[in-house]
Computed example of a mutant assay.
Amino acid sequence: MSGRDLREWTVLQVRSAMTAAMRTDPRALDALAEKNAGSLDPYTLSFLRTGRMLTLATSAALTTVLTAHRYGRDRHDRFVCVACGTGRCPTVRAVADVLSAYALQVHPVDRPEAWRRADDYYVRTAGHPVPLIIDSFDVGFVARPGLPPPQTPDNVLVIDRNTGALTLWPAYDTDTLATKYRTYKHGGL
């Protein structure tokens, strides 16, 4: 696996952990902790109460590290880690080895999660729920408002299948959006 591919795999692992923690309902964890307070040892109970925030904080910290240790072209037009100047970043390798040892799995965004993210976006921007149509393609989802809010009449959201990232696009048909989005993900556009 190339240094760039290893970094991409590592970023997906970290985002997967963060996404799993973000999807977890903190109220449900609190209720579970209260219900089982008498039957759990204090360490397990403490972890149950703080594990979500610990996972979010750790994922955010690793995201910061991976942002610094990203690949770009050097003055000789070679891909190297911009922080280390090497073709195979030892920091990315070390983080990847730890994540691999604990067998973290990437949990891609599914259709219901894509709908949830698009709904959240439109509630924040339009101030109210907007009927949505979700179309799927290999690396993402297209969220089309059934009745577009006035501030984005000709745009749709693309939700990345692996990262959950949202980007706003012109309202092309799904096949055109899929092609343009793949190009965008690979540094084009």
Rank of each mutant, 00 (worst) to 15 (best):
R88H: 10
D41A: 02
T44E: 04
T86N: 06
R15G: 07
D97F: 06
W169E: 15
R4F: 07
D120L: 14
V98Q: 07
Y172T: 04
Y43L: 10
A103S: 12
S46L: 09
D119V: 07
D173W: 02
T50N: 10
A57V: 15
D175A: 15
A60N: 07
T183C: 07
H186E: 14
R111C: 02
D74G: 03
T67S: 09
R117G: 12
H186P: 03
Y71K: 06
A37H: 13
L168Y: 06
L12C: 08
T163S: 15
M53C: 03
T19Y: 14
V14A: 10
V123T: 06
T10Q: 01
L66C: 08
G51Y: 13
H76A: 09
Q151F: 14
L104W: 03
N155K: 10
A143Q: 04
L32V: 06
V142Q: 01
P129I: 02
R182N: 10
L29G: 02
D154F: 13
T86V: 10
R111L: 05
G85R: 09
V65H: 00
A20T: 03
T10K: 01
L29S: 02
Y181G: 11
P148S: 10
H128S: 09
Q105Y: 00
Y43P: 00
S100N: 14
K185V: 10
V130M: 00
T183Y: 01
T50G: 04
S46F: 05
G38N: 14
V109G: 08
Y43W: 13
T91A: 12
M1V: 11
R52D: 00
E113G: 04
I134C: 07
P90A: 15
A57G: 06
F137Y: 08
G127W: 13
R116E: 05
L6Q: 10
L56F: 06
Q105N: 02
T125R: 08
V65D: 00
Y121R: 03
E113N: 06
F137D: 14
V11I: 12
R70K: 06
R93Q: 06
L32F: 07
R49E: 15
D77Q: 05
S16E: 02
G188T: 12
T67Y: 07
L168F: 05
A28E: 04
F141A: 09
V11Q: 05
L62M: 09
R70L: 07
L45P: 00
L62G: 03
N162Y: 14
A96T: 02
C84L: 03
A61Y: 12
V82H: 01
P148C: 11
V123W: 04
P170I: 13
P153W: 13
T44L: 06
L147V: 13
L132Q: 01
H107V: 03
L132M: 05
D120S: 12
D120W: 12
G85K: 05
T67E: 09
A33P: 00
V123G: 02
L99V: 14
F137G: 15
R4L: 08
L66E: 15
Y71P: 04
V130D: 02
L132T: 04
S16M: 06
